[in-house]
Design a protein around this nucleic acid. Structure first.
Lengths: 121, 121
DNA sequence: CCCGCTTATGCGGAAAACCGAATATATGAA
DNA sequence: TTCATATATTCGGTTTTCCGCATAAGCGGG
């Protein structure tokens, strides 16, 4: 493999993909894609402790995926780049299609079994 | 947040994003996007032990992201859906743009410092 | 300056991910 | 059936991630 591509993929892992490896961080990103939110609002929306939200936000912030804006004592977070949601939507569509196929295969199996059973009768 | 979306995002994490959380698995996906490959070829290309490749392939296979085809004693793996590469490319472009911006800001800082320094002289 | 509110971080422990080496399994050929 | 090759899995141990709780730090009002 091309040496340069390898380095970029390691970087991609460090800077982006690694941060997507936690379900709550996906929720945070989607929540922010609707509208900017305060930390406490996120904690309420996701139903997890404030300290957890704060730590997840740190991971996203350190990688430049979200942007904090101080407003008095609280901090408003917003999504840095909507393309991350676009990428996730692409993956979601992919997953959805796969489940669709799976279901169809199961259906076919079912019909196949029915047919054979019918023959036996 | 919408309850249904939350469930789907947890599923997205389990089925896809979690599997992207390791740099070697990104390499495997990209290697397979060029062409289907045997396990041993992947081990050679990525310069890691065969057992590691095999374990990473299991993760990807269990989630339906790659497809194994037995050919005699060896197994040819191929990418299940090219959209996963499309999504990664989107994220890569995003990251690239951010670095570009970062560099520009640094440049501006540098010029700013130069200007001030020039004034001092 | 001190207090109340919001967010960030330190701590300790539990769970999970990861790795290389060794071993087991599967396949086809002799 | 035995053997050689290719792949999968087990094992043991190290490192990393994650979490809740408690506490620190930042901010504005009084």
């Amino acid at each position: 493999m091309d040496e340069k591509l390898v380095k970029e993929l390691f970087l991609l892992h460090d800077q982006v993909c690694d941060a997507l490896g936690n379900p709550y961080r996906l929720l945070v990103l989607y929540a922010l894609s609707e509208q900017p939110r305060y930390v406490s609002d996120l904690a309420l929306a996701l139903e997890i402790p404030q300290s957890s939200v704060s730590r997840h936000l740190k991971v996203l912030r350190d990688r430049g995926l979200v942007i904090p804006r101080r407003q008095g004592p609280s901090v408003l977070y917003e999504l840095a780049d909507k393309r991350i949601i676009a990428a996730l939507e692409l993956l979601r569509a992919m997953m959805s299609d796969r489940f669709q196929e799976q279901a169809q295969i199961t259906d076919t199996d079912f019909l196949e079994k029915r047919r054979i059973t019918a023959q036996d009768e």
